[in-house]
Design a protein around this nucleic acid. Structure first.
Lengths: 199, 199
DNA sequence: CAGCATACCGAACAATCGTTCGGTATGCAA
DNA sequence: TTGCATACCGAACGATTGTTCGGTATGCTG
């Protein structure tokens, strides 16, 4: 993959910043102003260079980002952390830490975990769990469920049992919940597809 | 907060889809084409309505997203999951699963955790850890460190001790690492600011 | 030294854009 | 029935845009 010149990187940074902040691809003259350049032609040439290297696409009179440049909006996932290197080599980037990477899609949602019932599986109090409400949960899956008349929300591991389901905590202090087949209150909210913790 | 009419929502969806896919605010005629409308004036009126309700901003000849509409790009973090509601009420959305929320900032990076030395604190084998290389780590912090001549990378909890540091695992099967003050190989890669797991 | 890539300028043209205007149609509430 | 909000049309104007052209300057490399 080709590298960018410092100037091309600067132009791309301005573009990404604009997309990030206001959801808009800046006009050529706008980029020029931010970089204190006088001629739109200068930026135009940089855009062409960026397109030639795969960071931008052009259709008719419209410039847009590519998957390649969209990645810079996220945090890189590094394979090996090179010894003492403040800069991260392109070759060692295995992916990017985008919301999509952790399963964020339209239609899904996220809930904060309350309680310590799943600490045994590394799900702590205060963690954020990403839920897919459309996925059909099978036995053994981590699920979010509504329980009881209060319709409380819980994270548990689902197990099919004769006569109904069981919701297994991962903490010896908590008990397995037995759900009869005809429980009027029990309903699955969805399957857990991702987890986020902030320190 | 004012609600959107179905048509306004449709227009906003087209805009968000375009920003999401190609990092570009679509032109008025482009939106019209996607919605199979013939006149740009129609879309223009919808944009004005969206702006009046706070979903868009206009500066001179430029339309852009607002914080309000940018939120729809991410996965909502729901406070209470309403019983049986397939749709999520606006009032219960506490935030959004954006890159910023995940701790993604320029300069940070992410590494995959190998080994089970931190399972006691809910950090499992295969988890992704978000690292801030610029944050100064204090005693008690979760850190990423380079160790030994091989400069292996480890996640551990840092403790100051007379004569150096200690790196504490959170798993009885692993031992505390004692780092003398003058260890030529030991170096901190950064502080752990986030954690991410995929199921 | 010549050659080449990078980086910039200013002027101008045509394409595209946002915007305005005047108009029609529908459905709902007073 | 009269209003009013919503939703759409087509034509046209001027602003802004991408784009081209010809040109200068610098620094690195062979």
């Amino acid at each position: 993959m080709e590298r960018l010149t410092p100037r091309q990187q600067a132009v791309l940074d301005v573009i990404l910043e604009s997309v990030e902040a206001e959801g808009r691809f800046p006009s050529i003259r706008e980029i020029a102003r931010r970089l204190r350049l006088a001629s739109p032609a200068t930026i135009f040439q940089h855009l062409e260079a960026l397109a030639a290297k795969g960071f931008l696409r052009r259709a008719r009179h419209r410039w847009m980002l590519t998957p390649r440049s969209r990645r810079d909006l996220g945090v890189p996932i590094v394979g090996r952390v090179a010894a003492g290197q403040p800069l991260i080599a392109w070759e060692e980037i295995e992916g990017h830490m985008t919301p999509e990477f952790m399963g964020a899609r339209r239609g899904r949602f996220s809930v904060r975990v309350k309680g310590a019932s799943m600490t045994g599986e590394g799900i702590l109090d205060g963690d954020y769990v990403i839920v897919d409400p459309d996925a059909s949960a099978a036995s053994g899956d981590l699920v979010i469920a509504y329980l009881g008349a209060e319709q409380e929300v819980t994270v548990k591991r689902l197990q099919r049992r004769r006569g109904g389901w069981e919701l297994h905590p991962a903490n010896p202090d908590y008990e397995i919940l037995h759900i009869p087949h005809n429980d009027p209150f029990f309903r699955l909210a969805g399957k857990v597809v991702g987890l986020l913790r902030r320190f």
